[in-house]
């Protein structure tokens, strides 16, 4: 999800043109290592395209975690009870932490975090489309935990076995920590569904708004997802977008029904033969529009991140200046 290739066709063509010529012997040796399920570590030789793919994917994933703090952060001060407030704070904090683990993994590939963050702020880097939707009611916090984190986990578990060591290790830690995220969201939704008419309305409304964007998180259908084959070969990606999406749908539909929520899809049906839930068509025009910047909150999210960064500049400078003075005193 946070890791699907969100580049436009033009961006991909440009990247392909910038291809460097690699030594075929080294390439073969590299592929053999991957095929033997060996981990690739930071200082090991790797094809430039592998490095670039990883930098793009890991940093996009990190940006998604950081931008992802905003929609949920929107409700921290309004969380209805101490318990919910503490849970939400801890969860949003985890997202910051996960962003940091991932930037840290990306930095092992020889790129500075500052550079990656600048790319985000300049609009050159992508992040998951899901965070460009607004959190309107408290139920959205439940829906995000349950659906968005649910989708994220489905996508992230296979990444724990990704061929790049630092990324795989970061993902193992993240998956372990995120295990409470989905549960707390589902619990919050279930509490609303047990509650008053107004609470049930809130919950169903959140379900209606988040369901389709959550399905889009797995990225475009396999039929148009050109980039996957190479990533599969490199074991950066292990399952296709559609496979993971189906896995999520099959797990989530019964969860919705169990607490009395309707899935907002008139065409949804269970196929007895395949044992899978089948959905109606996903509106990919909406997906690509949000990727391109035309989601409801794209500007708000970027403004918030940029202003945090810009207004923090004097703080970071001051801390560096103080450290330099102290180092000077010590040396003298």
């Amino acid at each position: 999800m946070y890791t699907t290739d969100l580049r436009s066709a033009e961006e991909k063509r440009k990247a392909a043109r910038a291809k460097v010529v690699e030594d075929p012997e080294k390439l073969a040796e590299f592929q053999a290592r991957i095929d033997r399920d060996e981990f690739i570590e930071p200082k090991d030789w790797m094809p430039e395209a592998y490095r670039r793919t990883l930098i793009r994917q890991i940093s996009q994933h990190a940006h998604s975690e950081i931008v992802g703090m905003l929609p949920e952060g929107n409700w921290i001060t309004r969380a209805p009870t101490f318990r919910r407030k503490l849970i939400l704070l801890a969860k949003v904090q985890d997202e910051a932490g996960h962003g940091l683990y991932l930037y840290s993994a990306a930095e092992t590939l020889g790129v500075a975090r500052d550079e990656l963050v600048d790319q985000l702020h300049e609009g050159k880097a992508k992040y998951s489309t899901i965070f460009n939707y607004p959190t309107l009611t408290w139920a959205d916090i439940g829906a995000i935990g349950w659906l968005v984190d649910g989708a994220a986990i489905t996508n992230q578990i296979p990444l724990c076995r990704c061929s790049y060591g630092p990324y795989a290790r970061a993902m193992q830690r993240i998956c372990k920590e995120e295990s409470f995220h989905q549960r707390q969201g589902y619990e919050a939704m279930a509490a609303l569904m047990r509650g008053s008419k107004e609470q049930r309305r809130m919950a169903q409304d959140a379900m209606n708004r988040w369901w389709w964007p959550a399905l889009m998180m797995f990225g475009p259908p396999d039929s148009v997802s050109i980039h996957s084959a190479q990533s599969m070969k490199w074991k950066i990606k292990r399952y296709s977008n559609d496979e993971l999406r189906q896995r999520f749908i099959d797990a989530t539909v019964p969860q919705a029904h169990a607490i009395g929520l309707e899935v907002p899809d008139p065409e949804l049906k269970f196929n007895e033969e395949t044992g899978h839930w089948e959905t109606g068509p996903i509106d990919w025009d909406e997906f690509w529009a949000v990727v391109a910047g035309d989601g409801p909150c794209n500007y708000d999210r970027m403004d918030a991140r940029r202003s945090a960064h810009d207004e923090g500049a004097w703080v970071r400078e001051a801390a560096a200046a103080h450290a330099a003075k102290r180092a000077g005193t010590r040396a003298a």
Binding site: I66, M69, L70, G73, I76, T77, F82, K85, L86, L89, A90, V92, Q93, A96, G97, G99, L100, Y103, R113, V117, A304, S307, A308, E311, G312, A313, V315, R316
Partner: peptide, 24 residues
Amino acid sequence: SEWVGHAPALELEMAVSNLALDLI
């Protein structure tokens, strides 16, 4: 907790959340 998501450095996002968690 109003700082969460808006702290001056990414490392400080973690710090302000922890301070808020302690106090609440």
